[in-house]
């Protein structure tokens, strides 16, 4: 750490403070505008704070537009994506704790899939799912993103740092491999499950491109897709757009503030093996 004196520290603090203020201006402007009426926003000299705080924009989202349905879909999809955590954890456990034929080749193959851009897979996957009738289904939205190399990698790292003795002891007691995974390994992995769970939730909540492609029936729209539709249909109603955006952004910011310790700890790429 470069050590600095008090004066330098204050100067750095001021620089970061001003920069930080610019960073959150979009959020503040979004939230303030969401509580204004649209006529107030398009008026010639709008004030910073709403003249009269109104909830009409949010009411319109849920009563006249379909945001209730979009919210339900987003929650269902997010919950379904949690199954992926279990799949990643199992694969990470398998790669970390067993020696088997083809292990290294398979693991490198898994890592190699990280290089494949979504633009290459989206057309073939759409055609495949269309062929088996999974367009406009929750399963079709969730399935392609259920597992991922990075998640498997993180679980493998975690499990390879756990001593083999934990599992040997259970094995001596006559426990089967699946019992060991569910009753010993998974409970041990609670910290990483928490991080991955939060990231899966944020990922599910924010997912956009794939739901847009695979669901063309409004009944299956997620919040992101619905919001994009809203922008197209109510392009001049800025208050309504800001209410929709705030409804998507604020819950994630709150979850982030609550779980920040877990989330921020997940980024040390140079540590471990």
């Amino acid at each position: 750490m470069v050590s600095i004196n008090r004066k330098t520290k204050i100067i750095i603090g001021i620089i970061l403070g001003i920069w930080g203020a610019f960073t959150i201006i979009p959020f503040i402007w979004m939230i303030l505008s969401a509580f204004k009426t649209n006529p107030e926003i398009v008026a010639i000299q709008p004030k910073i704070l709403p003249n009269e705080w109104t909830l009409d924009n949010f009411r319109e989202l849920f009563q006249r537009l379909n945001f209730g349905v979009y919210l339900k879909n987003t929650i269902i999809i997010t919950l379904m994506s949690f199954v992926g955590l279990l799949i990643n954890a199992a694969a990470g456990f398998g790669f970390a704790h067993y020696d088997f034929k083809g292990k290294n080749v398979l693991f490198i193959l898994v890592l190699a899939t990280m290089m494949i851009p979504g633009q290459v897979t989206m057309i073939p996957v759409y055609l495949m799912l269309n062929a088996v009738g999974l367009t406009n289904t929750y399963l079709g939205i969730v399935l392609p993103g259920l597992t991922g190399a990075f998640g498997i990698f993180l679980f493998r790292q975690f499990f390879s740092n756990i001593s083999e003795e934990f599992f040997e002891a259970a094995r001596l007691d006559g426990a089967g491999e699946f019992y060991i995974f569910f009753r010993v390994a998974l409970p041990l992995s609670r910290p990483i499950l928490a991080v991955q769970g939060i990231l899966a939730f944020i990922g599910g909540w924010n997912s956009f491109l794939w739901p847009l492609i695979i669901a063309n029936d409004q009944k299956f729209y997620t919040l992101s897709v619905g919001l994009q539709l809203l922008q197209g249909q109510h392009g001049a109603n800025y208050a309504l757009q800001m209410a929709g955006a705030a409804f998507m952004v604020v819950p994630i910011l709150i979850i982030f503030l609550i779980f920040q310790k877990y989330i921020l700890s997940g980024f040390n790429i140079s540590g471990g093996k």
Partner: peptide, 26 residues
Amino acid sequence: FSFMRLIFYSPSITNIVAIAIVWSFL
């Protein structure tokens, strides 16, 4: 300074569609 770290990180986790709409407005 730890708080500033949260501030600078916050845009990363927000929904890109929502944020793009907000910035179109800005």
